[in-house]
Design a protein around this nucleic acid. Structure first.
Lengths: 161, 161
DNA sequence: TCCGGTGTTGATATGTTATAACATACACTA
DNA sequence: TAGTGTATGTTATAACATATCAACACCGGA
């Protein structure tokens, strides 16, 4: 489990390495990290929390990179398909992937107080959900695993107040 | 695991018993199963698949029970809070609970072909997700566990075609 | 060089899901 | 019968997402 979202760390470093990794992956798989896509990825990487498509769009618009919803959605779709970002269903929002490169089945811990999100890469399909699916004869293609609650910092703050 | 959603069964029986259980629970906890709420629950129970709020609303409207979005959303909120229904985040839709009475942490198997949904009551918090959360010091309040794929019937159909 | 295919972007419009805000009705009870 | 709380009715709008078509860039082959 990576709880990067909840920990202090060298953030500019973590952004830079993620962008580099994305560039490498695009080169390897013949994908194009165009200016809009790259900027959207940067915006997502800038925070360890989920951003709505319209948050992204507002920023793009302010920077003259496009002002219509499809601009943002297309870039986000690309990033999600390429594995550079994930969609958080419970929030209708998007977050940069923190396990770039690995093909994974992500699970998320979402703080309801500070909105920060941590990504896990545990293979849920191998756990109880997988057992249940096998018992039912169900073939899993994709899983959504999102836990909502309080991160360590917000629990402390809660207790203090 | 209950895979009721994927199995033949006496459906009118399963609807009736669910309504009875809901009535009993309302009586016990001093909740009110008003006409609109009851009708929405019936609509959800009528199918083992998720219905959007606007599907519900269209039906209510046709029956003269209210035509504005808040009517449907309020009834759905009540049913979800009371534990009579669940929201499927991945579909932005709602489904009747098939484990009424038990306080549970549901997980869902969603067929992308026939849209049927089966509900499990495995306690995911005790599985890998729970381990990950404990390791991160995260306090889980609510979990969303939804697997998308193909149900047994649709797999068979797929293979045949 | 031209051409056609593919992929990306630009732009308008629309569709879908969800909530805010405020008013009214109804039931219980003091 | 006035007061309180819960539920409902209504309008408007916020927030999220996609369909469609036009324009343009890039690349490989004729």
């Amino acid at each position: 489990m990576s709880d990067l979202g909840f920990k202090a760390h060298d953030h500019s470093d973590c952004v830079n390495s993620a962008i580099s990794a994305a560039e490498a992956r695009c080169a390897a798989f013949d994908l194009r990290l165009t200016p809009v896509r790259r900027r959207v990825l940067e915006l997502l990487l800038a925070e360890h929390r989920a951003l709505g498509a319209y948050d992204i769009l507002a920023q793009l618009s302010a920077e003259g990179l496009g002002a219509q919803p499809p601009i943002a959605y297309r870039a986000l779709d690309f990033l999600v398909k390429a594995g550079f970002a994930h969609r958080i269903e419970a929030l209708n929002a998007y977050i940069a992937c923190t396990h770039l490169g690995a093909d994974h089945t992500p699970a998320f811990l979402i703080c309801r107080s500070c909105q920060s999100v941590a990504e896990s890469d545990t293979a849920m399909t191998q756990g109880r959900l997988g057992d249940a699916a096998r018992a039912a004869g169900f073939h899993i293609e994709h899983t959504v695993v999102e836990a909502q609650g309080l991160c360590p910092a917000c629990q402390a703050q809660d207790a203090a107040s």
